[in-house]
C-alpha cells in the first residue's frame, strides 16, 4: 500500500491514515481467526426445544458437527441411551431433509424397524452399517462427514471414543452444513476426548396416559460435560408424535424452574 503522492493531506499526516487502515484490516483478520470470546460458536445448532436445556448448551442447542458422546448410566441402560440418541436424531430429521446413518461396532444392538416407529423415526430414513470394529466405525463416520450426504450420523462404539479419532471426526466435520454426530459408548468406556458434550442417560419410569398404560418414554439425562456450557440433570420425556422433548411437570425439579425463569 504505497502512499498517494497526489494526496492533499501532505506527507507528514499521510502516514497516519494508512497505518490506521492497516490496523483496521489486521483487526478484521484477527476477528476472523479468533472465535468470539463468549463461547458462541458460529456452527449451526440443533435447539432441543427446551429453554432449560438450551440455556446450558453453548449457542442454545446441540452444535451440529462436533461429536457428542452419549453413555448409559449403567450396563442395563444401553437401550435408554440408544433411545435418547435416536430421539435426538428424530428431532433433527424432523427439521431437515436427508437420511441418518447408524454405524455399529459388532455386538452393539441395532434398532428394530417397528420399534423405531414408536420413537417417531421413519425407518426408511435410516441407513445401517455393520462395521467390523470401532476403527471401522470411525472411518465410516469420517467418510460420511466428508461426503456431506447425510443429515445425522450415529456411531455405536464398543470401546469408547479416544482422543485421536474424536479429533479427526471434529476436523472432518468442519465446513458448511455439518450433520448431527452422536457417538454411543458403553457405560464403562469413558476416556478423555474432544467431544462437545457428554451425556449420561438412565432409564426412568415412563409416563402414563389417562388409562394408566405406558405412554411416553422418559430418561434421566445428565449433561456431564459440556464445552463452553454448564452441566445439568433433567428428567426428559419424548413425545414421538410431535417430535418434542418435554420436562414432565410434576417431577420437574429445579432445573426446569431455572430454565423457565431464564426463558
Amino acid at each position: 500500500m504505497g502512499l498517494d503522492p497526489a494526496d492533499e493531506t501532505g506527507r507528514a499526516s499521510g502516514r497516519t491514515p494508512a497505518r490506521g487502515e492497516a490496523r483496521a484490516r489486521l483487526a478484521a483478520l484477527r476477528a476472523q481467526l479468533v472465535p468470539p470470546a463468549d463461547g458462541r460458536v458460529s456452527c449451526p445448532i440443533l435447539p432441543l426445544g427446551l429453554p432449560a436445556l438450551d440455556a446450558h448448551l453453548p449457542g442454545g442447542g446441540l452444535a451440529l458437527g462436533p461429536p457428542h458422546e452419549i453413555a448409559p448410566a449403567g450396563p442395563a441402560d444401553g437401550v435408554a441411551a440408544l433411545g435418547f440418541a435416536l430421539a435426538l436424531c428424530a428431532l433433527h430429521l424432523s427439521r431437515v431433509s436427508g437420511e441418518a446413518l447408524i454405524a455399529a461396532a459388532p455386538g452393539e444392538p441395532l434398532p428394530y424397524g417397528h420399534g423405531l416407529m414408536g420413537l417417531g423415526l421413519d425407518p426408511g430414513r435410516l441407513l445401517l452399517l455393520e462395521a467390523g470394529g470401532d476403527g471401522e466405525v470411525f472411518r465410516a463416520l469420517e467418510a460420511a462427514l466428508h461426503a456431506r450426504a447425510l443429515a445425522a450420523l450415529i456411531g455405536l462404539l464398543r470401546d469408547g471414543l479416544p482422543l485421536k479419532p474424536g479429533r479427526r471426526l471434529q476436523l472432518a466435520a468442519e465446513g458448511p452444513d455439518p450433520p448431527l454426530l452422536l457417538l454411543l459408548r458403553p457405560a464403562a468406556a469413558g476416556m478423555p476426548n474432544g467431544a462437545a458434550t457428554r451425556w449420561r442417560i438412565a432409564a426412568a419410569p415412563a409416563s402414563r396416559d389417562r388409562f394408566g398404560t405406558l405412554d411416553r418414554p422418559r430418561w434421566r439425562a445428565r449433561l456431564e460435560r459440556c464445552r463452553n456450557g454448564r452441566g445439568g440433570d433433567w428428567l426428559l420425556e419424548w413425545d414421538h408424535a410431535a417430535h418434542r422433548l418435554h420436562l414432565p411437570e410434576p417431577l420437574a425439579g429445579d432445573a426446569a424452574a431455572s430454565g423457565r425463569s431464564r426463558a
Binding site: G113, L126, L127, L128, A140, A147
Partner: peptide, 26 residues
Amino acid sequence: SVGDGVGFLADALAQRLGRALLRLEP
C-alpha cells in the same frame, strides 16, 4: 442431489471397508 451423495458414500464404504449399507425393510 442428496441421493447422489449417499450413493457415492455407499460405494466408497463398500470399497473402503468392504461393507454394504443396509436399510430396514418390513
